[in-house]
Amino acid sequence: MARMKFYCDAERCIECNACVTACKNENEVPWGVNRRRVVTIKDGEPGERSLSVACMHCSDAPCIAVCPVDCIYDTIDGVVLHDKDICIGCGYCFYACPFGAPQFPQEGAFGSRGKMDKCTFCAGGPEEDHSVDERRKYGSNRLAEGKLPLCAEMCSTKALLAGDANVISDIYRERVINRGASVLNRGVSYQNAAFRASSGMEGKSSVKK
C-alpha cells in the first residue's frame, strides 16, 4: 500500500502562503486554526529558505502514542487522522508533536481548548466519506475522490509535493540530480531543472552567454 507523505522543496518554496490559504479555504477550518504554515528560516539573511509545514503523517507518530483516549490513528494509506467525537482536548498531542501540527480552536483559561484540529491530508475523518458530518468536522476528503491535498496541488512552484512516498522521493531525487548536473554543464540542464539560484551556484548568468 502507498504511504502518503508531504515533501517541501526548500529550493523552490517562495513563501507565497498559497498552500496556507488553499488549505484554510478548502477545509473551512475554525477561526484561529491554521493546519499549515510557512516558516522562513534566516529571514533576510544569506541562505534564506522557506518551508511549508503541516502534519507530516509520521510513520511512528508521537501524537498517536501519547493520546490518552486513543483518538488518533493512521489509515492504510499512512495518513494520520483523528476522531473528534472521542477527542477530549487535553493538548498532549500538541506537546508531543515536533511540527506543531495539532491546533486548538481556543486557548482559553481552565484548559478550555476545544477539539483538536490538524491536517488530514485532505482525507476527512472516520465518518463516512463525503458525509455532511465529515465535511463539518474535518473539511474536505479529496483522497477519496482520487485527488491529492489541495495545498500541494495549488503550489505554484511545485515546491510542496504530496503523494506516495516512493513517487515523491523519485521526483525529488531527479530534481537534485538535475540541479547538480546544471552546475557541471551550465545552460544545458538548466532548462530541465528550473530552480532558484543558491549561494555557490550561478545558473542564471550562464544563460546570458
Binding site: V20, N34, V38, V39, T40, I41, K42, E107
Partner: peptide
Amino acid sequence: TSGRSQIAGVESGTLINPYGETWR
C-alpha cells in the same frame, strides 16, 4: 530551530520542537 511565519500564534515560527519526542 526558529524562523518567522506569517501565521500568528505561539511558536508558529518554530520549525521543529525536538523536546516533544523526549516528553513522549
